[in-house]
Design a protein around this nucleic acid. Structure first.
Lengths: 200, 200
DNA sequence: CTTTAGTTTTACCAGTTGGTAAAATATAAA
DNA sequence: TTTATATTTTACCAACTGGTAAAACTAAAG
């Protein structure tokens, strides 16, 4: 009971993180309340605070638990692979994450739109390092004449914005595409877009 | 004094709307407080509530005041103009709005990410109608062989996401591009992207 | 200058917020 | 079964929340 979590602890912590994801992704940090999270996972507020001492701690814990898996698709880009399939694979993985993990996408979107007060340092260190590294790989591919000349950083931004849009702005997309599955046509639209963009 | 606002009324209402934009765009509806808005415009809370009766009224008023100007760039697309310059003009106008009106962009982003509870009907009526109308124009251009075959709705979504990204996710973009003006390269990047996408 | 209407402040309220203390209960080890 | 530990509940608190009432002040019309 000293160096590992009990079954109860694991179950409750997982349940709290799931509820926190639900609430924080819907309302942002300031708009979320501990009571809302507690209700969402069926615990009393003091019981929840027995596992995580403050609202901010829950939020930080949640963000850092998700950060790695959020950046994983970018990490997977292999400089020794085929440039086209590497980039298209990244687009495809990001789009798939928007489809299967929309709450996570909105959690990060809320945090960043609201100024990222709790993950600014992660953006400036881990994220910047990773992006700069992959931008160099893209630049190398350009220099080798394997893909068209595009601004590497903006290429990455455009992949983020285009794929995450379907999760973050889901309500708007759904309002316009009433009886259509957005992701069905998004996949082929983005394939065309990046294919044309990167072809020399 | 009956059918027009006094100078004091106009000054205070404008000042409140400006402060409300500042606060709501930073924290979303639930995260914003009347006190924060009141402090931001140097009025006492009861004084502010003398001009707008509730927090929700301020928010709704703000959103509806901005909605028209927010959709204006799309409205300007002229079906009788040159398809390329019409679409590139739209991209350019949207990007310019992200640069000059980032708070407005984040206000809408916050509202939509959080489920658009207060403007869902606008999305489903005004926005959908306008988008469908312009999608038809784009489809016409495609049918006439003037631009490449792309999914019109997704083309519009991609213009939204790519341009608004620079306002909404500004903190993230700045974290990566530390000493660079994002908009300088964004303009030419997006020009290249849409040019390649739409060329047959 | 006085009256009236418009504006601002002061004092307040009930409900919510993040969080705590301590008692009560459940679990598991000896 | 006893004991120690882990978990949950109850009762609470000070600060903040959206909002109100009414008094005090200001500006403008007659």
């Amino acid at each position: 009971m000293v160096d590992h979590e009990s079954r109860i602890q694991k179950r409750n912590k997982d349940s709290i993180m799931n509820a926190a994801l639900e609430i924080f992704s819907m309302y942002g940090f300031r708009g979320a309340t501990v009571d809302l999270i507690a209700n969402a996972c069926g615990l009393s507020k003091p019981n929840l605070l027995y596992y995580y001492q403050t609202k901010e701690q829950i939020h930080i814990e949640l963000l850092s638990q998700l950060m790695d898996s959020w950046l994983a698709p970018l990490r997977e880009i292999d400089e020794n692979g085929d440039p086209f399939s590497e980039i298209m694979g990244y687009v495809s993985r990001k789009l798939h994450m928007s489809k299967t993990l929309p709450r996570e996408s909105r959690l990060f979107a809320n945090e960043i739109i609201q100024g990222a007060p709790r993950i600014n340092h992660v953006l400036q260190n881990d994220l910047k390092t990773l992006v700069d590294e992959k931008a160099l790989v893209i630049q190398k591919w350009i220099d080798e004449g394997l893909i068209a000349k595009v601004h590497p950083h903006h290429l990455i931004f455009s992949i983020w914005s285009l794929t995450q849009h379907y999760a973050d702005f889901d309500v708007q997309v759904q309002a316009v595409l009433v009886n259509e599955d957005p992701f069905e046509n998004a996949e082929s639209y983005l394939e065309t877009l990046f294919s044309k963009l990167l072809t020399i």
